[in-house]
Amino acid sequence: MAFPMDSLLVCVVLIDLALLAVNRLVTLVRIAALQGVLIGGLSLYVGGADAASILTATASLVLKGIVFPFMLMRAMREASINREVEPYIGLNLSIIFGLALLALSLWLGFKLPLPVAAASTLIVPVALFTILAGLFLIVGRLKALTQIVGYLVLENGIYTFSLAISHQSSWIVELGILLDVFVAVFIMGVITYQINREFDHIDTNQLSDLKD
């Protein structure tokens, strides 16, 4: 068992659970950023020493650790959003759901056949759980901003998943995903700001009224 790597992965799981439990928007963005940094570090640890993997890892580190949080914080500041997360599903219940999702992803992760052996047995379940946690954030929270964070976490999960099979996939794909997310966060940040300016709130619930 690779001790440092497993510890990193456990930290990623803890951050996922913390994301579900946290009540403040600022903290939410900060821990999501921390997770990005951790996973970037993980990819440096797992990946080879070739220029391509170092480039991908560094790009993801810089984007998720510094650029995205900065943009989200700015959007939050300018839209002067209420600091609370406003969950649909209560925070205690979210943790319990999170544990159930974790059990599910552990089970799935050990069942899932992989083309190559992963660097750690934990990596696939953790990736799955991160993806599910991201989805949960998107589904279970009210604000547009939390949904962006959920989207980021989802991407973190996908990125972790790619680490399990990193020898196969091309780094171009990695960079492509990263670019996608960058654009997405950028656009969503801008849109959040715009929605707020138009409607004085960013409650997605009330946006659905627009469909009529």
Binding site: M1, D6, V10, V13, L14, L17, A21, N23, L91, N92, I95, I96, G98, L99, L102, A103, L106, G109, F110, T121, L122, P125
Partner: peptide
């Protein structure tokens, strides 16, 4: 109001530890 959350979190940590132990 947040105290129960931390305690539920403690249960969560312990269950997570068990899951990891079973998984590893």
């Amino acid at each position: 109001l947040h105290v129960p959350q931390l305690l539920v979190g403690a249960v969560g940590l312990a269950i997570l530890a068990l899951m990891l132990m079973l998984g590893a």
